[in-house]
Amino acid sequence: MSQEDEAAATRRDVAAVESSRANRGWWDRNADDYQQEHGGFLGDDRFVWGPEGLDEEQAGLLGPAGDLKGRDVLEIGAGAAQCSRWLAAQGARPVALDLSHRQLQHALRIGGELRLVQADAGALPFADASFDLACSAYGAIPFVADPVRVMREVQRVLRPGGRWVFSVTHPIRWAFPDEPGPEGLSIAGSYFDRTPYVEQDEAGRAVYVEHHRTVGDRVRDVVAAGFRLVDLVEPEWPAWNRQEWGGWSPLRGQLIPGTAIFVCERDQ
């Protein structure tokens, strides 16, 4: 979770419009710091599913890398489009979409022959059945008040049989403090409390929002959007990764999952 300066953290209900406005502003303001802090780990053209460092090249959650050639792929919450750059290197035709203008400016800075689109994931500006695959590595889904709306949009723009793979903070993490050390190993709240995490300014306006869903909620969201859940991947923390990333760390990663990856397919 974020550590925005001069913002007070709380838990309260947040409407969809307020949530979208807050997170667009947060990512525009913090994109530079985010890319500076995490760009080395993410690389310019790697497809990393989360802080554990699980790489799509090894995981193959979108399918074998050799089968990506010629596929139309939508990346949602693309940031600086590192994942899309890797997809393009495999011969795919990716479209990198993000709500944040500043994040997409970093995509332009890094370069590459990519199609970049600034848009809200809940209103995708594409025709029905435009893509073979869709993916999101910690993009959009944790930050939207209505994830089913986003997934229905993804389902709409996918072709029959298309695969949708997205990663989010593992829901169990919400019961623990967002700390990488021993203090982050004791339960501090209810796993079942769906109240959003909000950082707000002195006037009470949200400047950053994350929305909690349980594992069961996420599964029901996937099904409600018209997908079939194929796999749920909980990456283990690898021995080579000694990096701390916010509340993610080798200490915690050896004991509790930090990331959940949902592998879904649209039926024919």
Score class of each variant (00 low, 15 high):
His212Tyr: 12
Gly63Val: 12
Val168Asp: 01
Arg266Asn: 03
Ser130Thr: 02
Glu199Tyr: 05
Gly50Trp: 03
Trp245Gln: 07
Val222Lys: 00
Ala65Cys: 07
Leu108Trp: 04
Pro125Ala: 11
Glu265Ile: 13
Leu54Thr: 12
Ile172Leu: 15
Gly253Tyr: 02
Gly258Ile: 04
Pro147Ile: 07
Gln155Pro: 01
Tyr34Pro: 01
Arg93Val: 14
Asp72Thr: 14
Asp221Gln: 12
Pro94Leu: 12
Pro180Thr: 11
Gly189Leu: 07
Gly162Asn: 12
Ala15His: 12
Thr214Leu: 10
Cys83His: 02
Gln36Cys: 07
Val219Gln: 00
Cys135Thr: 04
Ala88Arg: 09
Ala15Tyr: 00
Tyr197Leu: 13
Asp267Pro: 08
Val95Glu: 03
Arg71Ile: 07
Arg71Met: 13
Leu114Ile: 04
Leu232Lys: 00
Arg71Gly: 09
Asp146Glu: 12
Glu234Lys: 11
Phe131Tyr: 00
Val144Glu: 03
Gln103Leu: 13
His38Ser: 10
Arg156Met: 12
Glu56Lys: 14
Gln200Asn: 05
Asp221His: 10
Gln103Ile: 06
Val148Thr: 13
Val48Glu: 05
Arg156Phe: 08
Phe262Ile: 09
Ser19Gly: 15
Ala65Gly: 06
Asp45Leu: 08
Val144Asn: 04
Glu6Ser: 02
Pro94Thr: 06
Glu202Ile: 03
Asp221Gly: 04
Ala15Arg: 10
Pro125Glu: 07
Trp86Val: 10
Arg156Gly: 12
Arg21Asp: 15
Val215Ile: 13
Glu236Cys: 08
Gly258Gln: 01
Gly258Arg: 03
Ala260Gln: 12
Arg173Val: 04
Thr214Ser: 15
Thr169Pro: 01
Arg21Pro: 02
Val230Cys: 08
Trp49Met: 06
Val230Met: 07
Glu56Gly: 15
Arg213Gly: 13
Asp217Arg: 08
Arg12Ala: 12
Asn30Thr: 13
Val215Gly: 05
Gly204Val: 01
Phe262Leu: 15
Arg102Gln: 09
Gln254Thr: 11
Gln243Asn: 03
Gly189Thr: 10
Gly122Ala: 14
Gln82Trp: 11
Arg205Pro: 01
Gly91Leu: 03
His106Cys: 10
Glu75Lys: 11
Ala225Met: 07
Arg24Gln: 15
Phe227Pro: 09
Ala206Tyr: 07
Ala8Asp: 01
Gln36Ile: 10
Asp33His: 08
Leu114Gln: 06
Thr214Arg: 05
Ala225Lys: 02
Asp146Val: 09
Pro182Thr: 03
Ile76Glu: 00
Phe131Asn: 08
Ser84Val: 09
Gln268Asp: 05
Ala107Asp: 04
Arg242Leu: 00
Glu153Cys: 06
Arg152Phe: 02
Arg194Ala: 15
Arg159Tyr: 05
Arg220Val: 14
Thr259Leu: 06
Thr259Ser: 10
Ala129Met: 00
Trp26Lys: 09
Ala65Pro: 14
Thr10Asn: 04
Leu62Gln: 08
Gln118Gly: 13
Ser186Ile: 10
